Computed example of a mutant assay.
Amino acid sequence: MHSTMSDSKKLLVLNKPKGYVVTRSDELGRKKVYDLLPDWTFNDGWMPIGRLDLESKGLLLFTTDGKISDALTRPGNCIKVYEIWVRGHVTDEHIAEAKRGVESKHGLLKALVVEKIGTGGAKTKLKIVIDEGKNRHIRRLFGALKDPKFGTPLKVLELKRISIGSFEPDIESGKWRYLTVEEESMLLDAFS
C-alpha cells in the first residue's frame, strides 16, 4: 500500500486484534503488532501512540513523530472511546463510582462517560470514554469495583477501542492504513 497525496505522512492506524503485544521486541516470543505491519514501519521507527494490552483490541495509531505522540498521550488532550464486556452485574452505583474515580496504587482511575449499552447472561456491555490512559486503566478501574451480590471484583472480559479523538474509522481487524490528511488535521488541530 503506497502513500498517496491525500495520505498523512505522519500517522497510520492499525485495528489490533487480540493476542498481539504492543512492543518492538518480546522476550516471550509472543505475536507483535509489527507482525501485522509492513517491515518498513519497524525499520523506519514507527512507534505506537499509547498502548493496548495483549488481550485488548481496536484502534492503535503509529507515528514517527515524538511531538505528535506526546500530544496525543498527554492526559486531558485526547478522548478515547471503548466498548467493553464486564463479567458481573454493573449497577448505577458502579457507574457513578467509575465516573467519580477510584484510588489505586496507580493513581486515580476514572472514566468521563460510562454508559450501559447491553447485557447478556451475567455480563454487561458498556461504552467507556477516558481522556488519559494509565497502564491497564480500564481493567484496573473495574477491578477495583465489587459485584454487589458476590463481593468479587468486576472483571473486564473484552475491551475494544473504537475511537481516538474524532477519529473512528471503519477498518477490518488485523488491517492497517494511513490516516488521510483530513483525519490527521482533525486529530492534531486541537493541539496546534
Rank of each mutant, 00 (worst) to 15 (best):
L12N: 01
V13I: 08
L14Q: 12
L14A: 13
N15E: 12
K16R: 07
P17G: 12
K18D: 11
K18L: 05
K18A: 12
G19S: 10
Y20D: 05
V22D: 02
V22Q: 03
R24I: 04
D26F: 12
L28S: 13
G29C: 15
R30S: 12
R30W: 13
K31T: 06
K31Q: 15
K31N: 15
K32G: 03
V33Y: 06
V33M: 07
Y34C: 05
D35T: 04
L36T: 03
L36Y: 05
L36Q: 03
D39L: 00
W40M: 00
W40P: 00
T41Y: 03
T41A: 07
F42T: 00
F42Y: 09
F42A: 01
D44L: 00
G45H: 05
M47R: 11
I49Q: 02
I49D: 02
I49M: 04
G50T: 07
L54K: 15
L54Y: 15
E55Q: 15
E55Y: 09
S56N: 11
S56R: 05
L61Q: 07
T63E: 05
D65S: 00
G66A: 10
K67H: 03
K67C: 01
I68K: 03
D70I: 11
A71R: 13
P75Y: 13
G76R: 10
G76K: 09
N77F: 12
N77K: 13
C78V: 14
I79V: 11
K80M: 11
K80I: 13
I84F: 07
I84K: 06
W85N: 14
V86A: 13
R87L: 15
G88F: 07
G88T: 09
H89K: 08
V90Y: 05
V90A: 06
D92Y: 04
D92K: 09
E93G: 07
H94M: 04
H94F: 02
H94G: 04
I95L: 09
E97M: 14
E97W: 12
A98F: 09
A98K: 13
K99S: 02
K99R: 15
R100M: 04
G101H: 12
E103D: 10
S104Q: 04
H106V: 10
H106K: 15
G107M: 10
L108E: 04
L108P: 02
L109C: 02
